[in-house]
């Protein structure tokens, strides 16, 4: 490395740290949304760096649907304890109790109640004025249009046509009483960057990102993992109805709720193997996320309603 030259990963790191410090300095009651995935893991590491040797000055909040992978819950609790972070878990108990499930209500409605609704309720309940999220512009085309500091109205809604200009690295953090800010410190990171960074920083991630043999159902080319009681395709005894299950060596490229997250066939068991796989990928990382596929504008619609 030349003198005074920062590699691109260190440039991205510095930019993200700068953004998080700006949030901590300018908002009264910020929170970091923690979804347990790889991006969250990176975000937490960046927050640790931003405030070292101090503690992360805001809580982490996991908006849980109850449908996450068991490995995710285990990882979440151990990880947060280990790094001494304050963890808040919020769920839309009312709709979880009513058995809200994508196969029963449709993907859009289920997401709307269990994710968007739960998130908005939780932000209101705690009075958070800024929520830091791990969304990246590369992930999806409406996200490519999002500002780093993205203003939301009192209903948590995004108005894509009326965004504040965002100039240089000077962020307008001002919000009115009933508005709030979503902040995306990973805006300029790509999936490749995330894995590279996880590798060089040796950041812990949920083990199901790595390949192992899993029981799955193959539907429309998507490998849906079988988790008794959670997949929603089984009868009272936990037996899968209609469709046949298969054992396939696979891994998860991105993590969401079990019924809506497909695995991909893969043998990658190390960071390097994952990185080469991501490099060679011909499909985007959200290929296995049922939530983005309903229409060309589905993500934009969700974001307008308050989703991340």
């Amino acid at each position: 490395m030349n003198s005074f030259n920062l590699s691109y990963l260190r440039q991205l790191e510095s930019e993200s740290i700068d953004i998080m410090r700006e949030v901590a300095a300018e908002f009264k009651n910020p929170v970091m949304l923690y979804s347990v995935g790889k991006d969250s893991s990176v975000m937490v590491r960046l927050a640790q760096k931003a405030f070292y040797p101090g503690r992360i000055p805001f809580p982490l909040m996991h908006v849980d649907t109850g449908y996450k992978f068991p490995e995710m819950y285990k990882f979440r609790d151990e990880f947060c304890k280990k790094i001494d972070a304050t963890l808040i878990v919020e769920r839309n108990e009312q709709w979880i109790a009513r058995g809200c499930h994508p196969l029963k209500m449709g993907v859009d409605k289920c997401c709307s109640y269990l994710k968007t609704g739960a998130l908005l309720d939780a932000l209101r309940k705690h009075g958070f004025d800024a929520a830091i999220g791990g969304a990246r512009r590369e992930e999806e085309k409406s996200r490519a249009k999002e500002r780093v500091f993205s203003l939301r109205d009192s209903f948590g809604q995004w108005d894509p046509k009326n965004q504040r200009p965002e100039l240089w690295d000077i962020y307008n953090t001002r919000v009115n009483e009933d508005e709030s800010m979503r902040v995306f410190p990973l805006s300029n990171w790509t999936e490749k960057d995330i894995w590279q960074y996880i590798k060089i920083e040796n950041i812990p991630v949920v083990p199901i990102y790595f390949a192992q043999e899993r029981e799955v159902i193959v539907r429309n080319g998507i490998l849906i993992p079988v988790y008794p009681g959670l997949t929603g395709l089984e009868d009272a005894n936990g037996k899968i109805v209609q469709e046949k299950t298969k054992k396939i060596i696979c891994r998860f490229r991105s993590l969401g709720c079990i019924p809506c997250t497909g695995a991909i066939a893969s043998k990658a068991v190390t960071f390097d193997e994952i990185i080469s796989e991501v490099r060679a990928a011909t499909k985007s990382e959200r290929e296995n996320r049922v939530i983005d596929l309903t229409s060309d504008s589905s993500m934009e619609q969700k974001k307008k309603e308050g989703y991340f």
């Binding site: 490519a144 249009k145 300029n188 934009e300």
Partner: peptide
């Protein structure tokens, strides 16, 4: 162009309204 025009309104009107970010290496 649809790859770049991330907003529904942009695709409807066939114009680019807002700045979009793309990444490659």
């Amino acid at each position: 162009a649809y790859l770049l025009d991330g907003l529904a309104a942009e695709r409807e009107q066939g114009i680019t309204i807002d700045v979009a970010y793309r990444y490659f290496e």
